[in-house]
Nucleic acid binder design. Structure first.
Lengths: 241, 241
DNA sequence: TAGATTGTTAATCGATTAACAATC
DNA sequence: TAGATTGTTAATCGATTAACAATC
């Protein structure tokens, strides 16, 4: 409750908190009850001062010479992130990614995100259950959101359907959208959107790898496989089965 | 070829390039042949100056009064990212997320990432094919990486297996790792790692939503559903099937 | 031409890192 | 106590935004 307004907390800090949290839980499992930033810094590769600043947003204070109490800082991070209470969500688009998320128990156990149901327009999917969660017709979604006061909507539809589905979610009262499609969603100012953009992530890997490989070839380095694989190569892959 | 060394290009810029690329392709499909930053700015919500700076890294120059040639800038972005050539990858961990990625044709069509095969230790999965790509025993992975000069490894294993699998990949010659597990991987300095961390992404949504909801309650705002749903609620969900 | 739009240089903003006093 | 570690203030670094001359 005494924590700072979240808007003033740097986004990079928020993104790092789950990484600290995981490490603290790992250390707790190993029986450690106190941990110093020095130690965390070695494991995670972050600057110790940055770690202190990051952890400070939770309101938890460490002890000079000792470090942070593992149990206390775990509670603090979870409370800051809202992961100490279960929160309900709906998911739209029961394709392979959507179903993977519905079956992903860690979201529930660690992050407190409980996906109540998936929604789809595909008759073949409707009626199935994934991880005990039903897949229902999309037409039923707004009513469920309203009746259960659900705040979080997860979008794993084909990109073409994303905006339409989001409009449905928003008008039914959804406040936060976790968007797994590449569509740039338009929502009212008060609705939060967090994008998981695989293309953006892959771009980083790809651009840096391209630069590395170009460097190697231009400096006459080792052999680089520029050409696509041949049919013969593919036959070899199958052979290995 | 004339492009700047990628290390000097800001990471946020690289992450935005695929977003521009998608928009340019959309505009091309609509028959547009030139686009201005002003227009892009309206659609994507970025500052026009930022868009100009971002696009400049590709080496493509726009025309004053006109804007960018759609076809030219598409080529430029793709070339900068290395998406104009197919690149081969292997995937370790054929769980639901791994299989979703193997079946995700857009990675191949848009980003030029061709996943040749998936690897797993589960006998039940080995021998299956996803999207015409075989799932093979993990023990065969290093040999395939070596023989086909594969540079990219995708890690979708359980977190416990991640480091071990990455070690296998690295010693077989993998140069870049796309990590979908929450494990902080340790690799030699020359190996690139890009993490897709669902927990970090959800943390942003979650922390902001928590802050919003706390605000609402403390200012005596509208009803907020704090309590977990009841069994009766769940019965209602099922009823809707 | 006039005006829209570009690329670039300078100013601002925000996050990271360094320096250091406080403290158990 | 002495030394390790904290929290905070100041300095640095990097990204975004503003200002403006160049140009089709």
């Amino acid at each position: 409750m005494g924590s700072k307004p979240v808007m003033s907390v740097p986004l990079p800090t928020i993104r790092r908190l789950p990484i600290y949290l995981r490490e603290f839980k790992l250390l707790r499992a190993k029986g450690r009850s106190v941990v110093s930033c020095t130690h965390l810094s070695e494991v995670l590769g972050y600057d110790p001062t940055q770690i202190r600043k990051d952890l400070a947003v939770t309101g938890i204070v460490g002890r000079p010479k000792i470090g942070y109490l593992v149990e206390e800082i775990i509670e603090g991070i979870q409370s800051f992130l809202g992961w100490d209470n279960k929160v309900d969500a709906v998911l739209a688009g029961a394709g392979s990614l959507g179903c993977a998320l519905m079956g992903y128990e860690r979201l529930n156990e660690r992050q407190g995100l409980r996906i109540l149901a998936g929604f789809d327009v595909d008759k073949a999917k409707i009626g199935q259950t994934i991880n005990e969660k039903p897949i229902m017709p999309l037409s039923k979604m707004p009513d469920l959101i309203r009746r259960m006061h659900i705040h979080i909507g997860i979008v794993t539809t084909p990109v073409i359907a994303a905006q339409e589905v989001v409009d449905l979610m928003v008008s039914a009262g959804i406040l936060a959208i976790w968007n797994f499609t590449p569509a740039p969603l338009s929502v009212p100012a008060e609705v939060l959107v967090e994008n998981v953009d695989l293309a953006s992530s892959f771009a980083v890997l790809s651009a840096r790898l391209t630069a590395v490989l170009n460097d190697k070839t231009s400096t006459g380095g080792s052999h680089v496989n520029i050409n696509p694989i041949t049919n013969a190569d593919f036959a070899q892959v199958r052979e290995n089965l």
